[in-house]
């Protein structure tokens, strides 16, 4: 299983570590080299420094070989563009994008993209907890 994770923030680094521990081949992409400091010794994958909205960077991360691509940078539009590029241009089977704006998430979900909105997820969880 080969996973490419775009964005190595709190979410991306955690995802990368878990996937790496789970025995997957993992490549993390971030435009800021310092972002990789969040990765612990448990991460054993590759790091690619570069702007993911540049297709050359995606290619150097071997995105066309990926089984899963998770676009989780802090920029919604970059996530959406990368996710769509992965799906339509590089033919990746499973593509996930993080979108912070629930309204935007809804629009892209209708376009058939697998979109995760942290606010919606958290709201659902907290709501369920309150109703319990």
């Amino acid at each position: 299983m080969f996973v490419v994770i775009i964005g190595c923030g709190r979410l991306g680094s955690r995802l990368a570590i878990e996937a790496s521990k789970g025995g997957m081949n993992v490549v993390v992409v971030d435009k800021n080299k310092r972002a990789f400091d969040l990765l612990t010794a448990e991460f054993s994958g590759f790091q690619v420094v570069g702007d993911a909205s540049n297709q050359e960077v995606l290619r150097s991360a071997k995105i066309s070989d990926a089984d899963i691509v998770a676009a989780v940078t802090d920029n919604d539009n970059v996530n959406l563009m990368v996710a769509q590029a992965a799906k339509h241009l590089f033919g990746v089977g499973k593509v996930l994008a993080r979108v912070t704006d629930p309204l935007k998430a809804e629009i892209y979900a209708q376009l058939g993209l697998k979109v995760l909105c942290p606010a919606t997820v958290a709201a659902d969880a907290i709501g369920a907890e309150m109703l319990k």
Binding site: S53, N75, L80, M81, Q84, I107, Y108, L111
Partner: peptide, 16 residues
């Protein structure tokens, strides 16, 4: 100046 922003604008305008 950013390609990703331009794409999002166009897609949202078109689909929404």
């Amino acid at each position: 100046p950013r390609d990703a922003d331009n794409l999002a604008v166009c897609q949202i305008a078109k689909h929404r």
